[in-house]
Design a protein around this nucleic acid. Structure first.
Length: 457
DNA sequence: AGCACA
């Protein structure tokens, strides 16, 4: 047989291998389906699914070469082609002798998820928000967060791999809904794989780690301060540095919040030097300048999450601004420099100089500063009266149900079609209010609509 | 319908 090498080899022959190459498989073909297909011919010792750009190829590895030959031979002469879900699959010997499975822990389903939070403000996502997000799929046992070269990451422990898988399938590649994040944060996208861990070790309740199964776990010192937002990094440093200027955003703004109202509320903690109000993301925000950081810290810690008006109206969310001195060009109904009484005042409000003694917040603000008659409800006492013993950081023991936002679990489980896409939610529809409590059975498919960008982003 | 990973 001369010149074999010069003749083109018959295209359909491959040297035999106990590994078979399958193509034209249906979408998301499973290992079980491959095993079913190969089982009549021998023992399938390994498979690899979803191979190739279209993820419609696969490999089957038999224990013995003879078994692979038997399968190829059978279908070579069979009138019925090999099929999976009624779709013809094409078989040939693989050009490799064994399947190389690069299965890492990330591919093996487990009860602990490794979550990478992507985005410029990823590290500002609080553990409470993560807890809320993942609680939609089942009881979250523990969460740890840490910083790696991959960025800000979290390990989220569920009771079993099924729940973890449901959460992974629903959330991987999705963005945390905007309305769960402080308004000044940019988009935060979740990338999720399985972790090799099965039980996380959480020594303290802190801003970096939580054990929701053990409310009696000691609270780390680093968690005592701050408001519950992620402000403490791996090294215990504050990530959002304190400032004498606060950024307040107002949720559920059913009633007008004016400059005077803000001035009254924030003056309870010390002299307010300047206020600038502006609209952002469809809501009202304000910058409030105090003379010093300490006053701002007290005001922030006291007012965060409180409502200006009783009944859950005009809920305050407060963070530190990067500003240290506001530039107020004109005194009007949106901005005021209380330190300069003689710059133009558009609506002729009396200026209040910032030199009054610091009020004790427990006493509420000086009454004469507030013309409350113009507003439908009186300003909530809760906004004025700091609950210094409140929150989970101080009182023993730390009960999970007292953790911030725990009550909002239900936002991830809306009835079908009832959840407006992020950004379209009217401001009065705060998380948690309009929806019934969590379903006991996770329905991750329905949560898709609550997440922002498509996976392709 | 045509050979994997990173």
């Amino acid at each position: 047989m001369a010149s074999v090498s010069t003749q083109p080899q018959f295209r359909y022959t491959q040297p035999p291998s106990k590994v078979l190459h399958l193509r034209n498989l249906p979408w998301e073909c499973t290992e079980e389906e491959l095993i079913e297909l190969g089982k009549p011919f021998g023992k399938v010792v390994n498979t690899k699914c979803n191979v190739g750009a279209n993820r419609n190829q696969a490999f089957i590895e038999f224990q013995d070469l003879n078994q692979a030959i038997a399968m190829i031979s059978y279908y070579a002469s069979s009138s019925e082609p090999a099929q999976v879900r009624g779709k013809t699959v094409y078989l040939q010997y693989s050009n490799r002798q064994e399947i190389v499975n690069n299965k890492t822990a990330a591919d093996v389903a487990g009860n602990v998820l490794l979550v990478t939070i992507e985005g410029a403000d990823a590290r500002l996502v609080s553990i409470d928000v993560l807890h809320l997000v993942f609680s939609a799929f089942g009881f979250v046992h523990k969460i740890t967060t840490f910083e790696k070269t991959a960025g800000f990451q979290a390990l989220v422990q569920f009771s079993d791999a099924e729940i973890a898988t449901a959460a992974k399938e629903a959330l991987d590649g999705r963005s945390i809904p905007r309305y769960l994040l402080p308004e000044h944060l940019g988009p935060c996208t979740l990338r999720i794989t399985y972790s090799g861990h099965s039980d996380l070790s959480v020594k303290f309740q802190s801003h970096r780690s939580r054990d929701y199964t053990n409310p009696y776990l000691p609270v780390a010192q680093s968690a005592m301060e701050g408001s519950g937002q992620a402000m403490v990094g791996l090294d215990g440093k504050r990530l959002e540095s304190e400032s004498n200027v606060l950024l307040a955003s107002i949720e559920n703004m059913q009633y007008a919040v004016t400059l005077d109202v803000l001035h009254t509320v924030f003056s309870a903690f010390g002299p307010v030097l300047k206020i600038a109000m502006f609209d952002k993301n469809g809501g009202l925000q304000a910058l409030i300048q105090y003379p010093d950081v300490q006053t701002a810290v007290v005001a922030k810690d006291t007012l965060e999450g409180h409502c200006i008006y009783d009944g859950g109206f005009c809920k305050l969310h407060i963070s530190y601004s990067r500003h240290t001195d506001l530039s107020i060009k004109v005194n009007n109904d949106r901005s005021r420099d209380y330190t300069i009484p003689n710059i133009p005042v558009v609506n002729a409000q009396p200026s209040i100089l910032g030199q009054q003694p610091v009020s004790n917040p427990m006493m509420g603000p000086p009454a004469q500063q507030y013309n409350g008659a113009r507003f439908p409800p009186p300003i909530s006492e809760q906004a004025m009266m700091p609950q210094s013993q409140g929150g989970w950081g101080t009182a023993p023991p730390v009960a999970p149900q007292s953790m911030p936002m725990q009550v909002h679990n239900n936002v991830y489980m809306p009835p079908p079609g009832t959840m407006p896409p992020p950004g379209t939610m009217p401001p009065q529809m705060g998380p948690g209010m309009p929806y019934p409590p969590s379903h006991s059975t996770p329905q991750p498919a329905q949560t898709f609509s609550t997440y922002g960008p498509d996976r392709s982003q």
